[in-house]
Amino acid sequence: MSTQVANNSLGRRALQKLLRQKLTVICFVVIIIYLSIALLGALNLLPDFQARVGESYEPPSLSIAKIFGTDIFGRSVLFKLLAGTKTAISIGFLVTSIAVPIGITLGSLAGYYGGKIDGFVVWLFSVIVSVPYLLMVIAISYVLGKGMLSMCIAMGSIGWVGLCRLIRAEFLKHKEREYVLAARLLGANDYNLIFKQILPNVLHLAIITASLQVLGAIKSEVILTYLGVGVQDGSSWGSMISDATGELVNGHWWPLAGVVITMFFIIYALNVVGDALRDALDPKLVD
């Protein structure tokens, strides 16, 4: 009996549903490829993007280093893109790993306890959403000093709001449900009720939000780097795009083309997987 229930769990049904969709599986593979590149970068196994491989602005040709041509200093655009992949994925994960725990913790505490705690959390996120997002991120990054880490902390310290609201709303609903009342009657304490009983039932929201958060962070990085906050050493898609404005006018289209293609696949994959996760995990849509 118990195994049957386990076999029919939301997670398992979701996984089965996801694996039936070819596009989603392909997009999973794409994400894994980008993750592997980022991992290689973290282990210092990627080719050095600072090294000269040819003349300034060589158009694309059929060698690995020059498949996307070279930049103004004769560096390989491909190697820069790989380094940028590491940067982007790191930012995505760093921001998510800051924002999601904060969102879950504050959301569940506010929803579960209500009263003063709830009042404080609601006040806190009302304050944050009243200030324009980019102004806040830029201001916090300036305060912490320019660079990748402070940019991530800035994005993470604001990015929890959406998830917190969702989790809070779910907790408000769930804490009145019968299964929670039953657990309470059996003598479960607050810790048990929050983390063992209710949280597993709303955690899918965190998974969906996290996939969107990675995507949002990657897109924001590009804009922030263009505005001069963020990654400064050239190993980012954002700095490559901001260089591209001047390069296009002189007919050097390949660095921009390289970034657009590289960014397209990972953002597309994250979009598709995010949608698929929502469809698969949202019980309201189970048919």
Partner: peptide, 22 residues
Amino acid sequence: FIMAMSISYLVYIIAFQYILAF
């Protein structure tokens, strides 16, 4: 629409400015 959303805002600005204006 998903494909269109997968390209950075900055790229659209650069591309439109370059193609239509330049």
